[in-house]
Computed example of a mutant assay.
Amino acid sequence: MSRLNGNRALVESGQAKVNVAILGAGRIAHTMADTLNRMASDPRYASWIHPYAVAARDLDRAQAFADQWHLDKAYGSYEELTADPDVDLVYIATPHSLHAEQAELCMRAGKNVLVEKSFTANTEQARAMLAVAEETGMLCTEAIWTRYMPSRALINGVIASGEIGEVKAASANLCYPVSDKARMTDPECAGGALLDVGVYPLNFLDMAIGADHGRTIDHFETSMSPWPQTGVDAHNSTTLYYDDGTMAVSVSSMLVTSDRGGYVWGTEGYLVVTNINNPEAIDVYDNDHKLVRRIEVPAQLTGYEYEVADAASALLDGSIECEAMPHADTLRIMELMDAIRDRWGMKFPFEK
């Protein structure tokens, strides 16, 4: 058990902070390290969040990372990191295919985990991870930042208010030219557009018109265009049909650039979200396409601070999941992505 699990009083008294460690030292790990440094200097977080350690498979690389971001400790193996009794929360920043074994390693060593999206490569791995969380009492939550951001409540507030009437359809897309990254085209790394970028439009739709509003998916249609050398999805499109007849389209690609827009269409107007991957503004239009108002999203440090704060707060309450991304939500999205891949006939080598 982590030294702080369920011990909010110790932190609130100023006797301790939540020590956050990073497992992995790649690009996204640097973004998290920057976030933790900013949190440590921000009055909202400085009293209880501490950037503590990093682990990589090479000690020199880990030490260079720790020096750059002023971390207390650097470890040349993940096992050494999990053996440190002062680590409270581990952010897992490695490829999807490694998340399950690394999260289990951490939880069985008494460490809470914040696991970068996609949570795992498939639902089977996700269920196994969450079973370990139940067994050990460790927090295990998915780090899909849009679920934790204030923009979620702002978007849902517009829809729930009836300002755009009865919602009947929606669309979301996220496309980046990232096929030059080896992991993106490698089936052994659970590559392809869906798990890396496609998870965002699916989550956007789940929040904006799906489960957050009581709808469930009745059925879907989907297609993809494969990466020629390895067969993972390069482009994909999925049309979701909900139980009340509402329809939504999710598009993602690792070959092109898209507008990253989220669109929710109602009988009295529609809303446009600028950048579903990190919402910048929400524009509300009437039926004459007149801009009624623009809702600005609150200023942020990097956007990662919300998931860190929620995870730290949950572990201090002794919870094994975060309210913003409970296990049921993670499993629902993983099951949907499994079903989409199954329709394509696309399995990763470790699944066969």
Rank of each mutant, 00 (worst) to 15 (best):
L4M: 00
G6H: 01
R8N: 08
R8K: 14
A9G: 00
A9D: 06
S13H: 00
V20M: 08
I22K: 01
L23C: 10
L23F: 08
L23I: 07
A29M: 04
N37S: 08
R38K: 15
M39A: 02
R44I: 10
A46V: 01
S47T: 14
W48P: 02
A55Y: 11
F65P: 08
L71E: 07
K73E: 14
Y75M: 11
S77T: 14
T82S: 09
V87E: 00
H96L: 14
A100D: 13
Q102K: 13
G110N: 04
G110F: 10
N112A: 02
V113K: 04
V113L: 03
K117M: 08
F119S: 08
A121F: 06
N122T: 02
R127F: 00
L130N: 06
V132H: 05
V132Q: 10
T146Y: 08
Y148N: 06
P150D: 04
A153D: 15
L154H: 02
G162K: 14
E163I: 12
G165A: 13
S171N: 03
P177R: 02
A182N: 14
P187Q: 04
G192V: 09
A193R: 01
V197H: 09
V197M: 13
N203P: 04
F204Y: 15
D206M: 07
I217G: 04
F220I: 06
T222I: 00
T222G: 06
V249S: 04
M254G: 09
L255E: 14
L255Q: 12
V256H: 15
Y263C: 01
V264K: 04
V264Q: 05
W265Y: 13
N275H: 13
N275G: 06
N277I: 05
P279C: 12
E296R: 14
V297I: 15
A299T: 12
Y306I: 01
D310I: 08
S313E: 15
I320E: 05
E321A: 14
C322F: 06
M325S: 11
M334W: 01
D338H: 03
I340S: 02
R341H: 11
R343D: 07
M346Q: 03
F348K: 00
F348L: 10
E351Y: 02
K352F: 15
